[in-house]
Amino acid sequence: MIRSLVCLSLMGAGALVLVALLWQGHVSRPHEEVLWQQKRDLVAVLGITDLSLSSEARYTRHVSQADLFSAFQDFPAAFEHFPTGSVIPPRPAGVSGRVIFESQQQARP
């Protein structure tokens, strides 16, 4: 009897926590709407068309702007053009720099 009660209580508590979390995610909250609007303002000013998710290639950085119809298309999930593409790794990391950040103090002579 005690074992049943403990088991049911634990499952009930877990289910309650889960339902509370899911319900929290299901309903929209006013402060979130404010953040959405702020993000939309940013998108409108900068004319953003894509999420800044993966910046490894231009067709994954700007998925919606990717070339859809060229013969050798660059597109996410496109088939590899050449078999060697899957076995030849990218070039090893180099050390030459192009972007340098310096504080103003350091930059002054």
């Binding site: 939309r40 409108a44 004319g47 953003i48 999420l51 702007q65 060229s70 013969a71």
Partner: peptide, 21 residues
Amino acid sequence: AVMTLTASPEIVVQRMLGGRH
């Protein structure tokens, strides 16, 4: 994506030349 990119431009026009942007 849906909540933010609804404010993106209505149309973006690219130029294609030789199958490339």
